[in-house]
């Protein structure tokens, strides 16, 4: 990419960021602001799954484990042990990242369906603790997180929460784009395409996959932590395979292997959920049909479709 194109790109991103700040601040009521905030939170989680799924070619059915651990860590430490919320959030993310390292250590030995089953099993293991352990709320979950202050503003204010989430989202997006453009990112894609060849070229393929797994867990737990801050409570739903499946759906809907795709997928999914649920009872039918339709006909997802159309006009 030339320097001119690069700076052109930069302006585009800055413009997008400016719009993302100005439009909601000016127009949105607190309800839609909440919806957009939630979208950004799930966009972070879906992008983190995309790192594994789109770039690593590893379909995880247990990504909720890290999302949920981040959320649980934040709420538990703040509510049960009286830590400051910010410290709890950092601890939650750390715990989830360490868990990702431990779980990833085993999971990256497998690929394909075995990887999927193993990630599901580990996530269910953590889910079973969340559901059964009364001290951490059991199946009811745990609430009462007092939303903290950010300098002069309180996160209890929807606008502050939105801007804070937007800032984190932008940071995560930049960090992940850099990762993917780095040598590590190229190696990860190379392993997805042909592991034997990459190994023959001297790459430590399992280690690279492990790093991807840990990073995915780390970014996923940031999403989970924001989710806890946003809701003020956490329940085993955040750890459930339904949550893992939802993240998977967002990635497939938006288009795996594109980062922006899963973020858009998260937004479209939540918007549809909001509108469809308020008009009909058949939300599940819509989800299922979209899922089946995406797999059958739109394997590239929304982002792939947009890109193909853009590519048609300017090759």
């Amino acid at each position: 990419m030339s320097a001119a194109a690069k700076s052109n790109d930069l302006y585009k991103w800055l413009a997008a960021l400016a719009l993302a700040i100005i439009i909601p601040v000016l127009f949105a009521g607190s309800y839609s602001l909440g919806l957009i905030t939630e979208t950004l939170i799930f966009a972070i989680a879906a992008m983190s799954l995309d790192l594994l799924m789109g770039y690593g070619g590893l379909v995880s059915f247990g990504h909720a484990a890290f999302f949920g651990l981040g959320a649980y860590g934040t709420v538990l430490l703040a509510v049960k042990l009286g830590f400051s919320v910010w410290l709890s959030a950092l601890c939650g993310i750390s715990v989830a990242t360490v868990a990702a390292a431990a779980i990833g250590f085993f999971c990256v030995r497998m690929t394909g369906v075995a990887f999927l089953m193993l990630t599901l099993a580990f996530a269910q293991l953590i889910f079973s603790v969340g559901v059964k352990w009364r001290a951490i709320g059991g199946s009811d979950g745990i609430g009462g997180l007092v939303k903290p202050d950010l300098f002069l503003w309180s996160l209890a204010d929807p606008l502050t929460m939105y801007l804070f989430t937007l800032a984190i989202f932008a940071l995560v997006l930049v960090a992940m784009r850099r990762l993917i453009a780095s040598q590590f990112g190229h190696a990860l894609v190379g392993i997805r395409e042909n592991e034997t060849r990459m190994r023959a070229m001297g790459f430590a393929t399992q280690q690279i996959r492990l790093v991807a797994f840990i990073l995915a867990g780390f970014f996923g737990s940031i999403g989970g932590t924001l989710y806890a801050l946003y809701n003020g409570f956490v329940s085993p739903d955040a750890l459930s395979w339904g949550m893992s499946g939802m993240l998977l759906l967002m990635v497939v809907l938006g288009g795996a292997g594109s980062l922006m795709g899963p973020a858009i997928g998260a937004g479209v999914f939540l918007l549809m959920k909001h509108f469809v649920s308020s008009h009909t009872q058949h939300w599940l039918l819509v989800v299922g049909v979209i899922f089946v339709g995406c797999v059958m006909f739109f394997r590239q997802g929304i982002w792939g479709m947009l890109k193909r159309q853009a590519g048609g006009s300017a090759p």
Binding site: L116, G288, V289
Partner: peptide
């Protein structure tokens, strides 16, 4: 993996 996703989608449809 496509079939995993596909049957996952059908589980929603059949529940609905």
């Amino acid at each position: 993996l496509d079939q995993v996703l596909l049957t996952f989608g059908f589980s929603f449809i059949l529940t609905d």
